[in-house]
Amino acid sequence: MAPRGIHARSTAETSLRKRHARARLFALFCAAVTWAGAALLMLLLYQISVNGFKWFDVQFLTSFPSRFPYKAGIKSALVGTLWLISLVAIISIPIGVATALYLEEFGKKGRLGRMVEINIANLAGVPSIVYGIIGLAVFVRGLGLERSLISGALTMSLLILPVIIIASREAIKVVPMTIRHAAFALGATRWQTAWSHVLPASFPGILTGVILALSRAIGETAPLIMIGALTYVAFLPEGPMDAFTALPIQIFNWVSRPQEEFHELAAGAIIVLLIVLLTMNATAIFIRHRAEKKRG
């Protein structure tokens, strides 16, 4: 037997060799599976870019949709998405951050607080299409806001509100207690403490969460279909009460058509959508990174 191993326990040694082989095999398996999964997801991106860049030009960005693929573009969808996301930001950010501040800095941490917390966690898990149905019943029909930008924005705001609240609370939680105590010791009220110390200290974290939440809203399709965003819009919305379309709706419309050309148009629109999302995510990662470096 080779003079291997410390201590020759002959039977134990052969079994140890087996155990080592198993460990190596397992590590290899996990790595292989990971890279296979990654390859599949990369394939998706590759396939989109190969098809999408066929139509990708200035004309594509500046034309209205059309029955003729070579004339079609995403102008109204892009403008609709910008409108929508601005309205969503205006509505959801103040409410979301205010809720997080109230829960962390003002509310009593009692039974009621726990219930609100559980409620928010569960809202975050409600399927987006259910929000769409509520939007349809409450905003479109109930409040008579019709199939307008504002209906879409309100629906989307409800959808991402839990995400913003949860992320903001996490950011506020990591602000050290000592900072608050220092402020209170100087005679500051709760609000003064929250406004001038807690909010600035948690700002990067909140911003990151908000950006990620908004990027979710940009990609959501189902709720917009529910509230009846139109699939063919050859005009630009001019105010919150106007009808509209948005990028994911346009993509859905093009994908559902049988002709190959429209599928390629869809791929082109997906590229635009992904670029927007990538930019937002990169910004969020950048902000988080810088804040972490500052904290040291």
Binding site: P3, R4, G5, I6, H7, L16, R19, H20
Partner: peptide
């Protein structure tokens, strides 16, 4: 050195150690 073997010799198995 443990039992005449260097613990860090290439042929030593850390699990066995």
């Amino acid at each position: 050195i443990y039992n005449r073997q260097d613990l860090y010799a290439a042929e030593v198995d850390p699990v066995e150690v």
